[in-house]
């Protein structure tokens, strides 16, 4: 009996700008159920970080509780990690991000962790536009505790237990839009072609970036009557358009398809290209985004892709005018500026 991942990798794996193969971004072998959508999202995160040539030690991955919140063990094994209390990941990220603005903060959560116990934290971290990526692995149930309906389960959808869910669902993208999120996308664990560029774009966005990834729970919620099953999502997903992401350092070559409707230069200099395929969505307009979400919901479809983005986002550091340098890099003299400074401050308050 053996369950371990071999060390051998494909001999022709591409190297990124740091000279790393994808293997440098992998984690331990997953202990989730075979076929769990969450594992695919982990795979997409690995790919995105590799392709962006991120330094693993410059990333912090944080999560709450749930199968989804276990996944940070399965990717970015060389990055910082914090597995917090159920639903409390946002406040831990807030603290960490305020202290050290130099890390990339990747929050991973589930629909239970976010839309039930963590709803309050979720709302407030959005409101503050904390500079982080927030990925919800959304399976419409509490996978870890054996598949109870979660707050994102659609009304009428039935999991393995068989009873239709009597309550209306929380749409996390719509909620985030309402709360003032500056980057909102939805995707599907089974569509890496869409998910990977979205993760890359979210990572380059300055401010709060939500990706609500529908991620089937094969064990408890992949039934014929579930609206979060592989089959249902494949049949009902409608993309806002396709996304290409050109990292900052990469030259824009002709291999990128022409005809982009929008080309956005991100905060770090990378370029996001959007190709419109259908619909009237303007992803830079909140009202248009909200309309599109509701229209698709009314039709029983799932809108995926980039839903909204604020090109002029100002994150919490900008708003609070915090130190440009992480706190751990400040010298004693800066942290304790001395009596003269205290006198000045006191004087200014008289």
């Amino acid at each position: 009996m053996s369950y371990q991942i071999p060390k051998f990798r494909h001999p022709d794996l591409p190297l990124n700008e740091l000279g790393y193969t994808r293997a440098a971004y992998e984690g331990s072998i997953s202990t989730l159920c075979a076929g769990c959508g969450h594992d695919s999202i982990s795979g997409a995160i690995v790919r995105a970080c590799h392709e962006l040539s991120l330094e693993p030690h410059k990333i912090a991955k944080l999560s709450g509780i749930g199968c989804s919140s276990k996944t940070p063990t399965y990717f970015l094994g060389k990055s910082h990690g914090f597995n917090s209390v159920h639903g409390r990941m946002p406040s831990v990220v807030t603290g960490a991000a305020m202290a050290n603005r130099d890390l990339l903060y990747l929050g991973v959560s589930g629909d239970g962790d976010t839309a039930s116990i963590g709803m309050g934290q979720f709302a407030h971290v959005i409101r503050r536009n904390l500079n982080m990526v927030y990925i919800v692995m959304n399976n419409g149930c509490y996978g870890l505790t054996k598949g109870q309906d979660s707050a994102t389960a659609d009304e009428g959808s039935a999991s393995k237990k068989g009873d239709a869910n009597p309550f209306s669902a929380i749409d996390l993208c719509a909620t985030a839009l309402q709360m003032g999120a500056t980057f909102i996308a939805r995707s599907f664990s089974g569509d890496k072609e869409q998910l990977v560029p979205l993760i890359k774009a979210a990572m380059s966005h300055r401010g709060f970036a939500l990706i609500d990834v529908i991620s089937p729970c094969v064990t408890f919620n992949n039934t014929a009557a579930s609206t979060k099953s592989y089959e249902f999502v494949r049949e009902h997903a409608e993309a806002t358009g396709t996304v290409d992401f050109v990292p900052m350092r990469q030259e824009i070559t002709t291999s990128y398809r022409p005809g982009a409707r929008h080309e956005v230069t991100m905060h770090d200099g990378s370029v996001l290209r959007l190709y419109e395929e259908e619909g009237s969505l303007n992803p830079f307009d909140r009202r248009s985004a909200m309309m599109a979400l509701m229209d698709h919901q009314n039709d029983g479809n799932i809108l995926t892709g980039l839903i909204y983005m604020n090109k002029n986002s100002r994150d919490l550091h900008d708003v609070l005018q915090t130190s440009q340098r992480p706190l751990n890099q400040l010298e004693e003299g800066e942290l304790c500026p001395g009596n003269k400074m205290l006198v000045n401050i006191n004087a200014s308050l008289r």
């Binding site: 071999p6 051998f8 990798r9 494909h10 075979a34 695919s40 664990s189 089959e231």
Partner: peptide, 15 residues
């Protein structure tokens, strides 16, 4: 096959 991608994700040698 339900096309969940689990095999693609796990395969150490990207087969």
């Amino acid at each position: 096959c339900i096309e969940c991608d689990a095999c693609v994700d796990i395969c150490p040698t990207d087969c």
